[in-house]
């Protein structure tokens, strides 16, 4: 007896696989989901659809807090200039950078 599967045999095996079903009451569940989607207010829907952004928002907040903490730790006090990286420049340096001819 051959130890190989013929194309026909494979096709027959796969055809037997053509009897899959979802869990019971599938149509009822789909209709309930649609009903629920339509009853959610528009703003609520937008928020619900953007929930996947939550993790990026959390990561961004953590990053901001780390930078903020580092800035406070380095300078000993909070200042916007230090936070955006301008703390180590004097007013004169900035004016020279903006207009070197003055």
């Amino acid at each position: 007896m051959s130890n190989k599967i013929t194309d026909k045999e494979l096709e027959n095996l796969l055809k037997q696989n053509n009897n899959k079903e979802f869990k019971p009451f599938f149509s009822t569940r789909v209709l309930a989901k649609i009903e629920k989607n339509y009853s959610t207010p528009i703003i609520g829907n937008i928020v619900a659809n953007r929930l996947y952004l939550q993790r990026y928002l959390v990561a961004a907040c953590i990053l901001f807090l780390l930078i903020f903490a580092f800035s406070v730790y380095q300078e000993g006090s909070f200042s916007i200039e230090h936070l955006v990286g301008l703390g180590s420049f004097s007013e004169e340096d900035i004016i020279n950078y903006v207009n070197p001819l003055i």
Partner: peptide, 27 residues
């Protein structure tokens, strides 16, 4: 839905296997 449920189930379950996600994708 009832007319095409079986057809969609065959496609989705054969692609994903029989799991909860298959049911969600079907819906």
């Amino acid at each position: 839905i009832e007319r095409y449920e079986k057809k969609v189930a065959n496609t989705v379950i054969n692609m994903l296997g029989k799991c909860d996600e298959a049911d969600d994708v079907g819906q």
